[in-house]
């Protein structure tokens, strides 16, 4: 695993990579892959829950990132934020189209509840301290909300309905959780 977190990569190093990608330097793509693939693949895999499909989505994401590089605006956020959003959106599109195809949205209930229950063993990787540290910082209720919103592609109101909570509670939990997480990199 990278020892310097991507989200806190020095902006200068990021800018250099962005510049090379913009000038259509294909070797920059290889470097990009080596730096970002684990993080992007992790998010995608967590959403689509299927290795083969995750690989397809990662490939799609890389191609899309390459072609949309011109529209990346570093004043709106970090490169990592931008690329992870592209990957996440593609992954969520994938599960939505899958749900449409077989109508597996019926599994909404088991899916989310079962995913909550299995979350720990499923994602536990001893070499990775980040997740454990995070688990200890967030209460399960906050994690549950963030997981639904981030990995489940739920809107805040959908999450409120799914968890049977007032919308305000979902908003507060999401906000508190994100603030706690942000403090981890200071």
């Amino acid at each position: 695993m990278s020892d310097s977190p991507l989200i806190s990569t020095p902006p200068a190093a990021e800018a250099a990579l962005v510049e090379r990608l913009r000038t259509r330097d294909q070797s920059a793509m290889t470097e990009f892959y080596d730096r970002y693939s684990a993080a992007l693949y992790g998010v995608i895999n967590r959403i689509v829950k299927d290795e083969e499909e995750a690989e397809d989505v990662l490939q799609e994401a890389l191609v899309k990132i390459w072609h949309s590089m011109a529209s990346y605006d570093n004043s709106k956020g970090r490169l990592f934020t931008w690329v992870v959003n592209i990957s996440r959106n593609l992954a969520i599109d994938k599960i939505r189209s899958r749900q449409h195809r077989v109508g597996s949205r019926t599994q909404g209930l088991d899916d989310s509840l079962a995913a909550q229950r299995q979350a720990a063993p499923d994602t536990f990787r001893p070499e990775h301290v980040g997740l454990q540290e995070i688990t200890s910082k967030l209460v399960p209720e906050q994690r549950q909300v963030i997981d639904l919103l981030y990995f489940g592609g739920f809107t805040q109101s959908e999450a409120a309905e799914e968890l049977n909570l007032p919308l305000g509670t979902v908003k507060t939990r999401a906000r508190t959780a994100l603030k706690i997480l942000a403090k981890l990199i200071r």
């Binding site: 695993m1 989200i7 793509m29 990592f80 980040g130 981030y150």
Partner: peptide
């Protein structure tokens, strides 16, 4: 701050892709 928080969360789920994937994906891309 919110973006950074989410970034931390995303990155915490990083998984090394399976062996062999690097060559496959990179060559196709």
């Amino acid at each position: 701050e919110l973006q950074a928080g989410l970034g931390v969360y995303a990155e915490a789920h990083a998984v090394a892709p399976p062996a062999g994937m690097r060559d496959r994906v990179l060559s196709r891309v």
